[in-house]
Design a protein around this nucleic acid. Structure first.
Lengths: 330, 330
DNA sequence: CTGAAAGCGCTAACAT
DNA sequence: ATGTTAGCGCTTTCAG
């Protein structure tokens, strides 16, 4: 089996608590024996069992990350930022994907706690469920949520403002008949962005009509299908706000396949600013989010909670979204 | 703190070994007490400590995954497949990204073993280092490697064949001056694909010249920069084989920015067939890999090794790549 | 069927 | 400075 602390103790004829002390840099061992121990451990290829250490120390140097979909570059970049920040603090991450499914999410939440992760970073799969998070005592931080009444930390972009900026841009460019494609209706980010959209519409004397909002999936295909539904519904459309870039990409695909020229016939705006949106062949106008930074911030905030820094107050960080005008709006 | 097996034992006035038996579905408890125990555990919100279980059982139901870059959709889809297959077997994954850095990779390899993962799935950061894997006794599987002389399992696509097909396609379409953009020179997949390219060239009476191969990074920007270098080097170029789709996307970007029309002035082919390659605005000709399936297979093969199925022989699985002709080659 | 006790590998008092 | 011991939470003999 694996070499344990006892093996190297026996080898050297010292007690194994000395080994522990030496290897963990604690005082109580002479410099000489410390060196002998370190050398022997190295030579024998000793690897401390983190399971055992975690059991006694009650820490695992591990955090769980639950996101809906790793293939969405938005989450990909966030995870990238999390991993980077985690590495600097000696943490590893359990990556879990919920597929926007609340049950899968709950399941992972349970497993993560059984694995005794030190903290959890989560993007809720749906809106309704997440008030139940308050019963979780593990340090936890929620991505992209700003609501009150919960105990956990929150870091995210200002979605309402983002939705406002996007819609306002459409309106300012002369589009008067925008439609909106969101994810599932109970998705928090979607609804917040819609609230912002409504505010912009109001400023231009317009209202948000129900039949101008379509639900889909947060994927390219989801956007394409929803666009088809909208354009075939008979309403007048001169622009579409895809609630994320993947959806907007699907809209672009629909337009392309159906001879609608962008940005003349229809203007398209997305949200997130994933890297593919900037390709010269795409040039999607969108709302930029600092995704990598968001990931780093997420971990760092969680880390502080884990280590018990800065008291018990809930911390909320709200990042500003930014309009990036490219070629899909006139 | 967290409630333990002892708490529920005390609550019920039974020994805690009975709790263990009941909760793990082992025999040796009457049906009646089992039900009482299950009910109490549920009521008290008992969550077994997997760290402790892992310590005694010597299993963690965890595997480590080390990939170079989660933002490359090629790896994204693989990871997706791994997570999906792992979930079915009750496994969680530690996601580690090496950033194509061998030292980072080694570091993670060490940590993973300390965390006592049951197995490791790895895409080596570079070529030279990976023979050192033979000293690792943890079940391990290597992505996309077919070489002999190692003890670990291997699952991947036939890169030589893929490189051959891609280059042959270019040649068959009348391109006679292809250049090649690879990742770092010591990358295994790159060199294998180049071997295939050479074979195709030979069939057309051509040879692979050193100055027609450029090194870059496996990113869009890497492809763009390498393309610029190549096109400015004064050699004749009528087509480029990007060793992965991200690089090919960068080449497309370079062409777009420099008024080179594709596929007339220059033909472009990639490798991987990431989803963005199929966008109507992109339509990249490429070599398809079954990435999701690859991920599933990776985990399932590893799982068998962990569970000690099918003896000790090294298993190698080689998937067939497939040419997908779109619009970037004439 | 059930309980007592040992031990997984390690850390942290407590002794010496 | 070093060794001894208890115990982290759990599983698994071994008795009863």
């Amino acid at each position: 089996m694996n070499i344990t602390i006892k093996d190297v103790a026996k080898e050297l004829g010292v007690s194994y608590s000395s080994i522990s002390r030496a290897l963990n840099g604690k005082e109580g061992v002479s410099e000489e024996t410390r060196q002998r121990i370190v050398a022997a451990a190295e030579r024998m290829g000793y690897q401390p069992n983190e399971l055992a250490r975690g059991l006694v120390n009650r820490i695992s140097n591990t955090v769980g990350v639950i996101i809906p979909d790793i293939l969405n570059p938005y989450f990909g970049e966030i995870v990238n930022g999390i991993i980077e920040a985690a590495k600097q603090k000696g943490y590893n991450i359990f990556l879990c994907t919920s597929g926007w499914n609340g049950d899968t999410e709950s399941e992972y939440l349970k497993i993560l706690r059984q694995k005794r992760v030190d903290g959890i970073i989560i993007k809720p799969a749906d809106y309704s469920r997440d008030m139940a998070y308050d019963t979780i005592t593990t340090p936890m931080i929620i991505i992209d949520r700003q609501e009150d009444g919960e105990i956990h930390n929150k870091v995210g972009v200002d979605n309402e403002q983002g939705g406002y900026i996007a819609t306002r841009h459409l309106l300012e460019r002369g589009y008067r008949h925008p439609v909106f494609i969101i994810g599932q209706e109970d998705n928090y980010s979607s609804s917040q962005r819609l609230v912002g959209a409504e505010r912009a519409l109001k400023e231009f004397g317009l209202t948000l009509e129900k039949n101008r909002v379509a639900e889909g999936w947060f994927t390219i295909e989801g956007g394409r299908v929803a666009a088809a539904r909208l354009f075939n519904s008979g309403i007048e459309i001169d622009s579409v706000f895809g609630i994320n870039d993947l959806i907007a990409l699907g809209v672009l695909q629909y337009c392309n396949e159906n001879g609608l020229s962008v940005p003349e016939d229809v203007g398209v705006i997305g949200f997130d600013d994933i890297s593919y949106a900037a390709l010269p062949q795409i040039q999607l106008t969108t709302i930029h989010q600092p995704k990598h930074q968001l990931g780093r911030l997420l971990f760092e905030t969680l880390y502080k909670e884990i280590k018990g820094f800065e008291g018990q107050e809930q911390t909320k960080i709200r990042l500003e979204p930014q309009l990036v005008i490219r070629k899909t709006t006139r």
